[in-house]
Write a protein that binds this DNA or RNA. Structure first.
Lengths: 149, 149
DNA sequence: TATTGTTATACTCTATAACTATA
DNA sequence: TATAGTTATAGAGTATAACAATA
């Protein structure tokens, strides 16, 4: 019977989607190790980062930035609020909206996370030169139609 | 209030993980459109491809090849078997094992899928030269430690 | 009427632990 | 004892549809 080492992968190894998934699994695993006891996912870190850079934004704004449905954002903010990292304040100008703010705890955690995530980035790209890393980001961006900064 | 276009993404756009996720979402969406009425996910296509290239392999072999737990493989094969694309045959040499085989329907579908997936690959990489596409695959591979073919 | 946030619900993908049958 | 497959269960991540409050 075929052993794992002898498996014929046919054309699977020629497909971008295959390598994207493998790379993402590896990167997410490394992310989890890098943040360790902070115990946060890339998605929640992204939400925290954007709230930190845009205090007072609405859930709709954040959903748009993260390309998530606004119903999905509810549970994202629920999680962050349960951990006292973020708070919903009633927006005064439009009482349908929640203005999202980091708590002091959230700000501290974000600061710690940023240095851990920076280390994580160096770690996953340790076999790539700085130029190669930039090429990789550029090529990925062209895959999904993202513009430069 | 901040609009989506004015959001400050801070350092998020400098992170490989961010672009990987965005690229993967775009690629998976395009995959779904490309296979259309065949209605199959990249994961099931991968399983089908490996079974097609290794008829008679066991569920354990396949789990290893796809880097999935063997309990996860059960539901993968359940789905493929419910659609009459794959069948479990009792391995004669070791009656604990299931030898996985494509049905005629599965073989036909795999053949159709391969051309649709090839088109999908051309489509997602349409803004990349052949050389750039190869560089991208090489760089992704170095992110997860994958060797050459 | 339209928008913001919420709830209820559901689906996909994945894993761990305990079980059965075989080896 | 160890392995192959299964089941029960759980959790993350995501979406759609319907709803209340507000605009």
């Amino acid at each position: 019977m075929a052993q794992t080492g002898e498996i014929d992968f046919d054309n699977l190894h020629t497909l971008l989607g295959y390598h994207l998934r493998r790379a993402q699994v590896a990167v997410f695993k490394n992310f989890a190790e890098a943040v360790g006891a902070e115990d946060i996912s890339p998605g929640l870190f992204g939400a925290l980062t954007i709230i930190g850079g845009n205090e007072g934004l609405s859930q709709n704004d954040l959903a748009g930035a993260l390309a998530l449905d606004r119903s999905t954002l509810v549970s994202v903010i629920d999680k962050l609020e349960q951990r006292t990292l973020v708070e919903r304040r009633k927006a005064e100008t439009d009482r349908r909206r929640h203005a999202l703010h980091l708590t002091d705890t959230g700000r501290d955690m974000l600061k710690r996370l940023k240095s851990k995530v920076a280390e994580h980035e160096r770690n996953i790209a340790k076999d790539l030169s700085e130029a190669e890393r930039n090429v990789l980001i550029d090529l990925l961006r062209r895959l999904y139609g993202g513009n430069g900064e």
